[in-house]
Design a protein around this nucleic acid. Sequence first.
DNA 1: CATGAATGAGACTTCATTCAT
DNA 2: TATGAATGAAGTCTCATTCAT
Lengths: 232, 232, 232, 232
Amino acid sequence: MARPATPAPAAGGEELTRGHKKKARTRQQLLDAALRIYARKGAGELALNELAEEASVSNGTVYNYFRTREEVLEAVGIELAVQLSHQIAMVSEGVSLGAQRTAIGVRTFLRRASADPEWASALLSVVRYAEGMRSALATYVRGDLQVGLEQGDFRFAHEGVAMTLVVSATMGAMAAIVDGETVEGHDSIVAEMVLLALGVTTTKARQIARLPLPVPAESPDDGRKMSRGPRK
Amino acid sequence: MARPATPAPAAGGEELTRGHKKKARTRQQLLDAALRIYARKGAGELALNELAEEASVSNGTVYNYFRTREEVLEAVGIELAVQLSHQIAMVSEGVSLGAQRTAIGVRTFLRRASADPEWASALLSVVRYAEGMRSALATYVRGDLQVGLEQGDFRFAHEGVAMTLVVSATMGAMAAIVDGETVEGHDSIVAEMVLLALGVTTTKARQIARLPLPVPAESPDDGRKMSRGPRK
Amino acid sequence: MARPATPAPAAGGEELTRGHKKKARTRQQLLDAALRIYARKGAGELALNELAEEASVSNGTVYNYFRTREEVLEAVGIELAVQLSHQIAMVSEGVSLGAQRTAIGVRTFLRRASADPEWASALLSVVRYAEGMRSALATYVRGDLQVGLEQGDFRFAHEGVAMTLVVSATMGAMAAIVDGETVEGHDSIVAEMVLLALGVTTTKARQIARLPLPVPAESPDDGRKMSRGPRK
Amino acid sequence: MARPATPAPAAGGEELTRGHKKKARTRQQLLDAALRIYARKGAGELALNELAEEASVSNGTVYNYFRTREEVLEAVGIELAVQLSHQIAMVSEGVSLGAQRTAIGVRTFLRRASADPEWASALLSVVRYAEGMRSALATYVRGDLQVGLEQGDFRFAHEGVAMTLVVSATMGAMAAIVDGETVEGHDSIVAEMVLLALGVTTTKARQIARLPLPVPAESPDDGRKMSRGPRK
DNA sequence: CATGAATGAGACTTCATTCAT
DNA sequence: TATGAATGAAGTCTCATTCAT
């Protein structure tokens, strides 16, 4: 499902009529609440009535937006994917080296997991269920892999396998972080190992993995949607 | 666990008489049934009613073996872990090179995932629930990592991080296999990437990852679901 | 415990194992409760949770016996049909004249409707929904019609149409009775009209419709299942 | 909220006209939609949400026309009754013989049930709910019965009982038709039986029941209200 | 120990009705 | 008036768990 990063300002399929921003607001309440619950208990545990309560909304209202648990998952997945798109695009903007972009991606995820374990927890739990989310991630990774391959830094036998490795290694490290494991320079260590796995030479891998991360052009509302804790 | 009515023929290994055997058998039926259900629908979905039916047992009987649903999950995790232990120990028995043992471990998992996707599916779904299961895995991996490090083949910055990477990369590849991805020489490709990530040199990694897998000393009851361990 | 594959030792369709009469008792509670509710509010209104409460049974128990509202309806329909079978068989036993049997049937229904409007109300409301019930009724009526035809008393153009007329006229009259209409000799009046409709001559119709009703061999538990009002 | 049947006709004759027309049209849309739903699923199932959608109107709008679900049911009943009045009046206009009028009424209903089972289905399902509807029917029937009695064709013991019989026999036959029973000359057969039940002599009943039905003075808007299928 | 009916908390889902726009 | 989002009571249904036999 392509579903471009743009939430659709003028989108043909959806309605965005004038005064009716209440609907959008409620929907956002629901997504936020879902993320909070995922962070706490994992996506498998989501109960729609619980979602209603967490979103301070009546029981039936949920059904104006989602008919099943899966639909919530899917919507949250898309929501997170959009956020990630912004995040990644912002952070590796201007970097043209595939290997470096890959490292930046990996490290950014791990940094954020340290800074915001709830976000990480929600992400991990959603990733398992939402197909749309996985493919969004994959697209980014795949692009960097191809660039790195063309630039001669990467040397791997199968792109799909390589992609899976990058994603799963990153997620695994995030899970460790969420579980409380703290390691000095965690992000660089993982990034270096991933680069090595992709065929980067020892010295280059070490060097790239330790470059200072570019500071993203921190837009004011970045991360807006997730950083709050439970409201009550 | 003193069962008064039990015959209890004076301390001896022979006391595994009928009653005990039957008891063990029922317990094993339950675990087997649980694994089948996991493979079909994921561990989150296990319903004890369904479990009872799958095991051809009445629903109340389940509670003679497990006090709660949680206990079932835990027991199944342990069961799988024990199976894994045997599998791994058997397969890398007699191999002393840490790097090779690691590669064998990774490849064995992936091979089995291809050969028995239901098993893989059950394993993946349990791994998320049972903590005890993860540590069982970790123990094996950690040993090999340390050996490889001492032998000078590995060069990594942090053992815990390395361990997480090995496990998560393997699991990620298994998930891909379960999802239907088929790649020529999948197991070797992944093993090579993992070795590279652990600091093995390019040529050595490639060579080790492609060694023929030792045929396990096929014991007659190999693969049989074991563990007649009495409940606690 | 033998745990035999055969749950039913002898019984044809249902199980009737020894100690387990509790199940039968609960089922009966539910049917009784359903009839009481039908009498009060019509079969369309039956709520399964309400049924549970009326039967003094937990909410989930209902689902051990019926999966849907329709299944309750069907079961109640059959229950009523069985009761009716007894009733009718008992009352027109020994009467061989088809026309007379028909009249007796009609009149018995109307008499009972007067005596027990709750029963009538339940019957009317179930009849609309339960197919099984209708066919049970139909069988009786059809038999009498055929006999009457052979005996030369009836003269109608189409048996199915005649049957429908007998049943609907009787039900209509019952509904009127339930609605409070009281008419001197109601049962005879209706019976006479029905006989006329079936082609019986004027004088014979009048005579047959006014014969004294045979007193049924009132068995002690007759009507047992319906006659009680709401228990609490 | 003022609920006057007529808002102030003060300002602007145009507003009055258009507004009123629209209002009446919307109301009619709702009634039509309700009848279509009745025909499909029975009156018990009418959901106002569904009604709104079937009428291409927003759900809140329904409440501008009816205060409660009950009112909708009632209004639909009346609507049908009015349609019936027209139908009956039209068809037996100019016929002065009570017995013949009765036969015509019965037969017309059955004919229409054959031709338009949806209409019949809606009618049958409403009859059970709307009291007002039954009395409308009754009025017509009663008139014909009295006429027939005075003319010496009928001979029945109780007018109320007779009326009930006529109505219920007709409805029963309609139900059979809706259920798919098709009989050659169904309408005449039923009419003849009904006449017999009312005391008409054998030969006369047969003759009257087989007279050709007068063709109604087809007014242009006859049947207007039911004949449309779903609009979209 | 095995059985399976009963339980009841809790989740799911619908829908008549209200109300701000 | 029209709209449609929100509400929440009421009903449906599942399932872990208990218990008498």
